[in-house]
Simulated assay, not measured.
Amino acid sequence: MKTGGRTASFTLRDVVEAGTRIGLDQLSMQGVADALGVTTAALYRHVAGRSALERLVGEAILGELTLVDDPAEPAAAHLVSFAMQLRRFTLDHPGTGRYMQRLFPRGPSGLRLLEHQIIALGRRGYDPPAAVALSSAIATMAIGATVAEQERAALLGTPEAEETLAVIAGSELMRQAGAGIPAHTPEDYFVFMLTAAAEGLVTQVPPGRPVPAPGTSC
């Protein structure tokens, strides 16, 4: 955009703020340039490309996530709470899940979350390697499940979803299985799955034990 014959000026902070308003799920160089009223060529003078833009915006968004730790919770309950906080934040900030799945941590905000978990699990008797292993396992499952939940929600009411329901309805065995599963919400299922995972991980790596080598068990 030209203003009084001169190119509109903007800062890297303006870029991050515009990208944050757009959100990671819709983020693009063109979208940010349009939001700032500048050309993409001008934007490239501040940001090297789409990947660099995603990192800037992703770290800014993750900076809004403050993990809460209740020291009274045992390790498994803490891990479930950690998973729930990741789920809620990811649902509230579309695109954040994919950002964390691709590479993590990519900057200070992601690193801060990992360090929080090292300290929190350290209070429960875990050394840093075990804390990172447990937290990473839970985060991988929590974020993966939440991203899948978001993608399923986006398909509700579509022909693809109706076809899937028809396939299930066509199986007597699946109908019997479905009839025996109590009514539940996506969050109910998430808690069920992550609780089982957290309890299994804590059994495999109890406080004070090192992370077992591949192919071994505690």
Rank of each mutant, 00 (worst) to 15 (best):
V147H: 01
G200L: 09
V57Y: 07
P129I: 00
F82E: 08
A75L: 01
G157M: 04
V16G: 00
R87I: 05
V202W: 02
R98L: 09
L194F: 10
E151W: 01
P128S: 06
Y126S: 09
G157R: 00
A153Y: 02
A161D: 14
S135A: 13
A198V: 03
F89P: 03
S9A: 15
A137I: 00
A41E: 13
R98F: 15
V80Q: 07
E115I: 08
P206V: 10
P71G: 10
A8F: 07
R152P: 07
T11S: 12
G180H: 08
M1I: 05
G5H: 04
H93Y: 07
T11P: 06
T20I: 03
L36I: 06
L24D: 00
L134C: 02
M174P: 05
T146K: 01
R55Y: 09
T185V: 03
G97N: 08
F82I: 01
T203E: 15
T164L: 14
I143Y: 03
P159C: 02
G49W: 10
F10W: 07
A131G: 02
P186R: 04
A33F: 09
A196D: 11
L65V: 05
E17T: 11
V202P: 02
Q150R: 08
L67H: 10
L91H: 10
P108M: 03
G110F: 00
V202N: 00
G63E: 10
D188G: 09
A42M: 11
L121T: 05
L12Y: 06
E54R: 09
L201A: 14
V132T: 08
R175L: 10
A35Q: 10
R55S: 09
E199H: 12
Q30C: 12
T140W: 08
D25K: 11
L56P: 00
Y126E: 05
R124T: 01
T3V: 15
R13K: 14
H93E: 10
L134M: 01
V211A: 04
P186E: 00
V57E: 08
A120R: 00
L12K: 12
R175A: 07
D14A: 09
A145F: 06
V32W: 02
A48Q: 15
A35N: 03
V167I: 11
Q176G: 11
F82G: 03
T185D: 03
T40F: 11
S81A: 15
M29I: 12
G95M: 05
C218W: 11
G180E: 12
L114S: 02
A42L: 07
L103G: 04
E73I: 11
A169T: 13
T216N: 10
D34L: 04
A166C: 12
R209M: 13
L56S: 08
R98Y: 14
P206A: 08
L24M: 13
L114E: 01
V167A: 13
L91D: 09
L27V: 13
